[in-house]
Design a protein around this nucleic acid. Structure first.
Length: 646
RNA sequence: GCCUGCGUAGCUCAGUAGGUAGAGCACUUCGUUGGUAACGAAGAGGUCACCGGUUCAAUCCCGGUCGUAGGCUCCA
């Protein structure tokens, strides 16, 4: 057999016999990392056991690299499947991919797993790891693979094979008694998988379709080093602490009541302050760029939604109709048709465009019970909604204007991780999910794409996610605990204005139909505040905080002085309160810290004598001594400028 | 909507092999007048989510309903 030349990244070129495996190279050549579990040959990830017969470049990777970690996670999923098959031999396996830092495997199992079962599975996994079984693979023909999986009654695998492209090579990975259809690659041995933890189990539908069999999904994680595993688990614990549902309760911002209904949040005085601040911000920004504010009713006849197409497309997520004097009325699920009515109420000329209507109304949607989630998915939502009616010529500027508004908000809140997603129609869904006019779709999508490119905004595209009436831009953000949400949305509507027979008189006297841009840069107030709670971990900037200042007298003797300060601040529009309980100062400070109040004003003998205040800011050890006037004016500026820090 | 788990005081949670319950914090009162993350004492608080069934007896066992958690599916 002839020799081949292999360039080992970071080490140099070596000559080997053809047919050598990376595993053999690893043991023959010094300096390759001991923990290497996988390698890249000419940029594709390959098992360490595969034979090399050509000159190439090879890079060994351990599980601390991104690719290596993915492989480790994937192999851990297989390890888990093997453990499950040992403990519950009747289980049928399905699929087990990796995610960021996690993996899962879906099983068709007789009885769902309990927490104890997960512990047992984990133990069995440890055993298989200790057995240090070689993980090998064989390439099989379609027929061989089908025969094999039929013989071992893995019907889901059979189904998968039948769906795979006929030309694709099928690989069967084996470790001990366990074999699985898989593209791979995998770590060389079960002994390479040492530090893992099963996280949770839940149900999942086969192929994600609710009509299919319910499977049991087990999530887990796995790392090369015990330290990294611990770090990740800690991170998960930390994330729980920032959950908006937990902080929302602790800071008394909102709650749900069984007698009111799921998904219908009640905002307490603290939470309502935040909504008011958000609205004040939005009004300020919108007033500057020419939005006109309107108000529309919460109830509307069904006829309107027939016309708009919403009844046809979204009836399953609208509250059922109520009969009013023999006519069907619906809770309003969105504002657009009402705004269209307002547009149409008086004749419009090209001089009126762009015509921008905004509304902070409450909409009601019947989200399925299992979809409700804290403030992020609710059934009554306050929209930061607006519709811009414009001509085709104006479209680009208006669209970019809206995107810029997003950016402005993001800057105010210190949101720097976001992604714009241009959602396009799916040609297959025309006439069904989407308005049936492919030319108009393509043209509008191209217009939006160009507008984004001209504004130098980065975006990704997503086919099939458009609204029924036009393409949209969704802005995805990640809360500090890694949850991804669609926060802002911006949709182009080329269909509904026509249905509503909206028109304006153009310069030449002809009637034209305007385009409509639907936009909600702050999404819903509920979701936005939910996001902000996690983003700030409850430590809101001063302007947004429900409780900005608390006055803490050192003893009852200084209550009068404290009260004077409190009254002054309140008169100046600062959200200030007074803690005049007979508690020691340390206790009052502790309580204020737990309530995450931004500023504590401490007053005792010293302060009364010198007519000053001692200012203790959240998280800041150094205190300031200021006069009441100095303090008031400085925080008023901080509030007015909506500073993010602290 | 689907699968599984959970539901005890305002909050965080104990507990009862079936005999109607307990702690800490918060709250109220009294004492204390204290200088940077918990002063002390006393008191008040619960139809053990709701509705049925089994039982002499149910917060506990069984069934249903509602709510909630983790996911799946969905999101104008």
């Amino acid at each position: 057999m002839s020799d081949i030349l292999i360039n080992i990244k970071g080490i140099g070129e070596h000559s080997f016999r053809s047919g050598i495996t990376p595993l053999e190279i690893k043991s023959e050549v010094k300096g390759i990392q001991k923990n290497a579990i996988i390698c890249k040959i000419n940029d594709s990830l390959v098992d360490l056991s595969s034979k090399i017969s050509k000159d190439c470049e090879i890079q060994f990777l351990d599980a601390q690299s991104k690719d290596g970690h993915s492989v480790l996670l994937h192999s851990t999923a297989h390890l888990m499947a093997q453990a499950v098959k040992r403990l519950y031999p009747k289980t049928k396996v399905t699929i087990g991919p990796y995610l960021d830092n996690r993996f899962y495997y879906d099983f068709d199992v007789e009885t769902p797993f309990t927490e104890e079962d997960l512990k047992e599975i984990e133990k069995e996994m440890q055993k298989i790891s200790d057995e240090n079984l070689d993980i090998s693979h064989e390439v099989k023909s379609r027929k061989e693979a089908l025969d094999f999986f039929e013989k071992i009654s893995e019907s889901y695998k059979v189904e998968i094979i039948n769906d795979i492209d006929k030309d694709e090579l099928l690989k069967v990975y084996s470790q001990g008694e366990f074999s699985d259809l898989c593209r791979g690659p995998h770590v060389p041995s079960t002994g390479d998988i040492k530090h893992f933890k099963l996280l949770s189990s839940s149900a999942a539908y086969w192929r994600g379709d609710e009509k299919n069999q319910t499977l049991q999904r087990v999530y887990g994680t796995s790392f090369q080093n015990p330290k990294d595993l611990k770090k990740y688990l800690n991170q998960l614990e930390e994330q729980k602490k920032r959950d908006h549902r937990k902080i929302g309760k602790e800071l008394d911002l909102y709650f749900y009541d069984e007698e009111i209904g799921p998904g219908l949040p009640l905002w307490t005085p603290n939470g309502a302050v935040m909504i008011d601040e958000l609205e004040a911000l939005a009004k300020e920004k919108e007033d500057k760029v020419g939005y006109l504010r309107v108000k529309t009713p919460h109830l509307t006849k069904g006829l309107l939604y027939e016309k708009s197409g919403h009844l046809e497309h979204y009836i399953s997520s609208m509250y059922p109709a109520m009969d009013v004097d023999g006519t069907d009325y619906y809770m309003k699920p969105m504002n657009c048709p009402h705004h269209h009515k307002i547009f149409a109420n008086t004749p419009k000329s090209y001089r009126d465009l762009p015509y921008r209507l905004s509304e902070y109304g409450t909409c009601y949607r019947y989200e399925k019970s299992g979809e409700l989630f804290g403030l992020m998915r609710v059934r009554s939502m306050q929209m930061n909604d607006a519709h811009i009616y414009c001509s085709e010529d104006q479209f680009k500027d208006e669209f970019i204007g809206v995107c810029n508004l997003y950016m402005e908000y993001f800057k105010i809140f210190g949101i720097d991780k976001y992604e714009m997603r241009l959602s396009l129609h799916d040609p297959k869904g025309l006439g069904d999910k989407f308005i049936n006019n492919s030319e108009l779709w393509l043209k509008t999508e191209e217009d939006v794409r160009n507008a984004l490119k001209d504004a130098k905004l980065k975006f990704v595209e997503s086919v099939g996610d458009a609204a029924f009436y036009g393409p949209k831009i969704d802005v995805q953000v990640w809360s500090s605990i890694g949850r991804e949400f669609t926060l802002a949305t911006n949709q182009v509507d080329f269909a509904v204005p026509e249905r509503f027979d909206l028109h304006y008189t153009d310069t030449d006297g002809s009637a034209k139909t305007p385009l409509c841009i639907h936009r909600a840069p702050l999404g819903t107030h509920e979701r936005f505040i939910g996001f902000l709670i996690e983003h700030f971990g409850g430590n809101f900037p001063l302007w947004l905080a429900p409780k900005q200042v608390i006055i803490l007298p050192v003893s009852d003797k200084y209550n009068d002085y404290a009260e004077k300060i409190n009254n002054h601040l309140k008169a100046e529009g600062v959200r200030s309160s007074l803690d005049d309980r007979s508690e020691k100062i340390g206790s009052k400070i502790r309580d204020a810290e737990l309530q995450k109040i931004n500023i504590m004003v401490i007053v005792g003998e010293k302060e009364v004598d010198s007519n000053t205040l001692t200012i203790r800011r959240r998280f800041i050890k150094e205190q300031e001594v200021l006069s009441l006037e100095q303090f008031t004016s400085s925080i008023k500026i901080e509030i007015k400028e909506r500073r993010v820090s602290n």
